[in-house]
């Protein structure tokens, strides 16, 4: 697709930042894509609340399954699976820590030790709790990733405006979301420029040298200020004013998919309540 082309005349963002770039909007025409951004925002909130409120493993697994099926129907399953490993270190850390240090001490004890003041213990209940925590994290991350991947920022901002949020806030939010790319680009250009002048950034400690920090942060600040001044001027020249509301082009209306999503969310909440009460009894 054309939007995947890059501008060859820009610098290379640092490798780590590059991996984050998978977290972006992928245009499409699926069920999720056609939803009003407000509905998706609602789904984000409802799913997160469900994941936080219920701690039964079965509920959290259900939520994750729900999200996976959404990802599959919206045709971004592959991208979704590639993006998940980004949170995997946190995921693994939570599971490991919780299985050793949770205070749920019922069920058979599989491992117990005392290391100094620490008292790691692995119990069946502990493992289940740890898994539940992991799935909770997964559920919340997944719904956010789904939201990011299927909602264009412009649509999102438009729907915020539709919710009567003042243009200054809705616009700033949208612009901030988009600027991450530009800022990364600025950063790598500055590093390129200073490395070309013999500033060693590939070896040694950056913090050690006052000059190194100044050589990076001053140009970064200057170009940021310049960018904001220029952008503000350009926006004014195009008629932008704070405090005046604007018409919105292409605002989405609630339609059938939104109703369906609403029903699905309601079903999810009811199912969670049911499962939770069963697992408690």
């Amino acid at each position: 697709m054309s939007h995947e082309e890059q501008v060859p005349d820009t610098g290379v963002p640092a490798r780590k930042l590059r991996r984050l770039q998978i977290l972006r909007y992928y245009p499409g025409d699926s069920f999720l894509h056609r939803l009003d951004p407000r509905t998706k925002l609602l789904a984000l909130v409802v799913v997160s609340i469900v994941a936080f409120l219920f701690s039964a493993l079965a509920v959290l697994v259900l939520v994750v399954l729900f999200e996976v099926s959404l990802a599959v129907t919206s045709g971004i399953a592959k991208k979704f699976l590639v993006a998940l490993p980004l949170v995997s270190p946190l995921f693994i850390l939570v599971i490991v820590l919780d299985s050793f240090f949770s205070k749920a001490s019922s069920g058979p004890v599989w491992f117990s030790a005392t290391i100094g003041f620490l008292h790691p213990e692995v119990t069946q209940a502990g493992i289940i709790l740890a898994l539940a925590m992991g799935f909770r994290l997964l559920a919340i991350c997944s719904i956010s990733i789904l939201f990011l991947m299927t909602t264009s920022q412009d649509d999102f901002i438009r729907s915020l405006r539709g919710m009567r949020i003042p243009p200054t806030i809705s616009f700033s939010l949208g612009y901030a979301l988009r600027s991450t790319n530009t800022l990364t680009e600025d950063g790598s250009q500055i590093m390129d420029a200073q490395r070309s002048r013999g500033l060693e950034l590939d070896r040694g400690n950056i913090i050690k040298n006052r000059n190194k920090l100044a050589a990076l942060f001053i140009p970064a600040t200057v170009s940021l200020l310049k960018r904001s001044k220029n952008t503000a001027d350009a926006m004014q020249a195009r008629g932008f004013r704070q405090s005046v509301s604007h018409s919105s082009y292409k605002t989405q209306k609630f339609c059938q998919p939104d109703l369906l999503m609403g029903l699905l969310l309601a079903a999810l909440v009811i199912a969670s309540l049911l499962i939770n009460s069963f697992s408690l009894s």
């Binding site: 600025d186 250009q189 500055i190 390129d192 420029a193 200073q194 002048r197 100044a214 050589a215 942060f217 001053i218 140009p219 200057v222 170009s223 310049k226």
Partner: peptide, 8 residues
């Protein structure tokens, strides 16, 4: 390109 990226 861009002097602003290097002057400090």
């Amino acid at each position: 390109q861009h002097a602003d990226y290097q002057i400090f």
